[in-house]
Every structure is written in structure tokens, then in C-alpha cells.
Amino acid sequence: MTDHVVCALSELPPGKAKRVMIGTRAIAVFNVDGKLSAIADRCPHEGASLSQGQVGGVIVSDRPGEYRVRTDMKMVRCPWHGWEFDMDTGKSWCDPARMKTRSFGVKICPGATLEEGSYSLEVFSVSLQDEYVVVTV
């Protein structure tokens, strides 16, 4: 497993998602209220880019006609047919056991620490003052 610096944190502010490439692998990185997550950017249904999807609180209901938006749990909705995926685990809401996309570890690293580790840094140069998004593949 290798850590890959995929972008500066400033490129992925809260509420945004980004498609990044690590080699030939497309990964969707999300920043939900400051918490990062990364899943394969390919919907297991028909392959849409999940980084283009809307992120929203999971909608639940106890009875017909009653609706609640869960504030403690958000999911991304595929832009093509609306299947929902947990951005931490890659599991779908409707069929979590069978229908899921891969998830990856992701963290924020200060630029100063990146020089010391063995990071894959193909894409850009790192400034010591900034913070970076690092995905483990």
C-alpha cells in the first residue's frame, strides 16, 4: 500500500468532491463538513462518476408520509440513477452486502511532513505551509 498525495486540501473545501487519478484508478474524494473520505469513482451499477453525485443526509422514515433527514449520516447519490453510497465504506444503502464500491484510506497531511515519508508525488510540488490530501491505495 502506498500513500499518494492527490491534491492540496484547499482544492477540496468542505462540501466538495473531486475525482483524482492514481495511476489508471479513478478515485472520488469527498470533504463532508471537514471529514474526508475516498471511494472508487465508479458506480457499481453502470459506472457513473460518483464524485459528480449529490451528497445529502440519509432520508429515513418510520411511517408512510413521514420523512426524516439524518444529520449524523450522509451519503452520495449517484448522478445517473440515484443509488446511494456510504462514502466511508463504499457500501450502497439498498444492498450493502452485494452492491458496493471500493473504499480507500484518506488523511490530511501538512506539507512539512510529506518530505519525510515515502509518498508518491508525481503530480505537483508541495509547499511546506499547506495541507494535502493523501489517499492510501
Partner: peptide, 15 residues
């Protein structure tokens, strides 16, 4: 179809 449109009918909690 429920997998993608269930937001409209969230009381349908299973297939």
C-alpha cells in the same frame, strides 16, 4: 427502480 428512487418513498426499507 426502488434502489434509485427510494428517496421518494423512504418507508420502503427493504427490496
Amino acid at each position: 427502480d426502488w434502489k434509485g428512487i427510494r428517496l421518494e418513498v423512504p418507508w420502503i426499507k427493504e427490496a
